[in-house]
Computed example of a mutant assay.
Amino acid sequence: MSTAAPSAPGTAPSTGTVLADLLPASSAARARLRDLALVVGGAVLTGLAAELSLPVPGSPVPVTGQTFAALLVGTALGARRGAASLGLYALAGVAGLPWFAGGTSGWSMPSFGYILGMIAAAAVVGALARRGGDRTVLRTAGVMVLGSAVTYAVGVPYLAHAAHLSAPEALRLGLRPYLLGDALKAALAMTALPTAWHHLSR
């Protein structure tokens, strides 16, 4: 739970605050309920985005909205809540809730490493957002690129191990086909997040 003080009306929220901190909570108990709702909501959003799935010929890893949602959740909620939200998403899917890509569940698929990577990525982008990393277009671009890199840093080696691929094969099947999509996702975030801060600062 964040302890960042709210900004005065009409002033820009200070560094140390993420978007979720701006939701009001009149007591510590209500703040905990707010944070719980945000964690669950972020997991649900990621699950819904995962259903936007397109297969990639020759690769066991589809193109989904999952990674974009995970990065937005981490940035908006901050490191702790963001990682908790993606952790909840992963645990519920492993337990059998069919909200991984294509309505799947479990942990045996070769793409499961990307889900683990999203937990780490949410923590990284959330920590950067608390330092103001989502308040300008260029900073947001850097945050999104780094978050995607963290996801791949876990997902690609996991894919290589699970699918018995060489490192070059894992990069060819688990990284290269998705770079254009990641660039488009970063462009969306570069517009959405600084715009949200701009309106909140007015």
Rank of each mutant, 00 (worst) to 15 (best):
E51F: 11
V137W: 13
M109R: 15
V137E: 03
V156A: 14
A153N: 05
R130K: 08
R81A: 05
W107C: 09
A79P: 00
T140W: 07
L175G: 10
G74E: 03
A5T: 14
G142I: 05
G78R: 00
Y152V: 02
M1T: 07
V44G: 05
P13A: 04
G113H: 05
L138R: 08
D35R: 00
P98H: 03
S53K: 00
T15G: 05
P60D: 09
L22P: 02
P60Y: 11
A69P: 04
S27F: 11
G117R: 07
G126D: 12
P55T: 11
L33M: 02
A187K: 05
G106K: 13
T104I: 13
A153M: 06
F112T: 10
P194M: 12
L23T: 09
T195P: 02
S166T: 15
H198L: 10
P98Y: 03
E169I: 08
P110L: 06
P60V: 09
L173W: 01
S14K: 05
L36C: 14
L71V: 07
A25S: 10
F112K: 02
P60N: 08
A170S: 11
H161C: 04
L23W: 14
S26R: 15
L48W: 03
G74D: 04
G96H: 14
L188E: 02
T11R: 14
E51R: 11
L116T: 04
P194H: 07
A49S: 12
M190R: 05
R176H: 07
V18A: 03
Y152P: 05
L72D: 01
A92M: 15
A123R: 03
A167V: 15
P24Y: 15
V150Q: 01
V125Q: 05
K185L: 09
V40M: 05
T46N: 08
L184I: 15
A121S: 13
M144Q: 12
A31L: 09
M1N: 03
D21E: 11
R135A: 10
P9H: 05
L159N: 07
S26N: 13
V124S: 08
V125P: 13
L77C: 03
A160Y: 02
W197A: 01
A120R: 09
G87D: 13
L173K: 07
G106P: 12
V44F: 03
Y158S: 03
L22S: 04
A192K: 11
L97D: 08
A50R: 09
T46I: 09
L22K: 02
A189R: 13
R81H: 02
G10N: 10
L175C: 12
A12E: 14
P194Y: 06
L38S: 02
